[in-house]
Design a binder for these strands. Structure first.
Lengths: 198, 198
DNA sequence: GTACAAATAGACCAATCGGTCTATTTGTGC
DNA sequence: GCACAAATAGACCGATTGGTCTATTTGTAC
């Protein structure tokens, strides 16, 4: 049976790696960075993750994905309406970008672009995380009155547009793209849910 | 005055770097990769780019941005209508992803997410490239009948959604997200241009 | 052809990379 | 307390990193 402290160590490793992946990406994040950020010695890294950096990164991406899904789920429950939840989701990222001088964007996207095509473990973690987001939001669109097929397409557009806007925000060092996309998506979803059958 | 061959050398460096940045990202691309891919010796790299890797990367991102703008401009002229051009733009990327086993996505996005927050030169090159894309497409939406403000917002949504879909395609190793986004954007733009004033 | 800068060529450097390995310490069941 | 595995600790490794430096070659103007 695993010792109690070791789960903390593992969680600290995953947490540090997830933060570093978010801000610096995969290739620029060294094991030494994870060690100094988490305080965990090198031996423990390879004890908990015999698969090395790739395996630690995959676990961290999966954890980030679960965190996003939980946060989005919370917003959807609290906001009461999927359109309001989408707007608050955007506002959360606008805040993160502003607070961090545009360092903290999507925790998944950078690693997905860097490594998903090369490392299966990482691709699976990224793919599953995005899939969960799209499905979760689509479900709530259905509850709000959309037809399932339309909800799936619309949810994919929403997630894609937000992800892309996060790229543009970093590229332009401005939160304006995400704010504009948020407003555009609001109109788009209003017309989707407001006129289910013309 | 610069010698004739040296402009070839510089162009070869930029071309190799641009391709490597597209497929592997900034941090994972070493100067040695550029050297072996381009055949240019190390001394020439630092002769043409005294600013080193960052400066070469910035020039390569700028070149990629100009390439995208030229390609999009060509599509807009040839297709005759901005909606058709958008669809063909998506189809181009769908082809690139399929041909390359999902290695060739957007030439700008990976570097933008990795380095725009850290290196001003690279941020400026990325920001300018995306700005050019959005403006170019917005101009053609105006020509197709959209009001300027609406065209700007719509163009930003289009570019963001495509960029984000490219992230999801890599993450899920599937071209389906971009195909669905293409169709959703087609509907979206049709209703934008079809009903200029309700 | 001479002079001189532009450009090429690659040896070389300290620093860092991911990963391995051997001790040592810690926690647990008996 | 004993035994034994889990976990921690960090020295150590070859390979590679971005970058520098000194020659040497190349192209051009006169």
């Amino acid at each position: 049976m695993a010792y109690k402290k070791s789960v903390d160590t593992r969680a600290r490793l995953v947490g540090s790696m997830a933060q570093l992946l978010r801000t610096k990406g995969y290739a620029a994040t060294g094991i030494s960075d994870v060690i100094s950020d988490s305080g965990v010695p090198k031996g423990s890294v390879y004890h908990h993750f015999p698969g090395g950096k790739q395996s630690l990164a995959a676990a961290s991406v999966a954890a980030s994905g679960e965190g996003i899904a939980a946060a989005l789920g919370g917003l959807l429950d609290r906001a009461g309406h999927p359109i309001a939840a989408m707007a608050e989701f955007c506002n959360y990222y606008i805040g993160q970008l502003g607070e961090s001088d545009f360092r903290r964007g999507c925790p998944l996207a950078t690693v997905a672009l860097e490594k998903a095509a090369q490392v299966d473990l990482i691709q699976q973690a990224c793919g599953k995380s995005f899939e969960a987001m799209v499905t979760l939001y689509a479900d709530h669109l259905v509850k709000a009155g959309a037809r399932p097929a339309a909800a799936q397409s619309a949810s994919l557009l929403v997630v894609s547009a937000i992800e892309g806007a996060l790229v543009l925000c970093k590229a332009q060092r401005s939160t304006a793209p995400l704010a504009m996309v948020r407003d555009q998506l609001t109109d788009y979803l209003n017309s989707l849910l407001g006129e289910p059958r013309p």
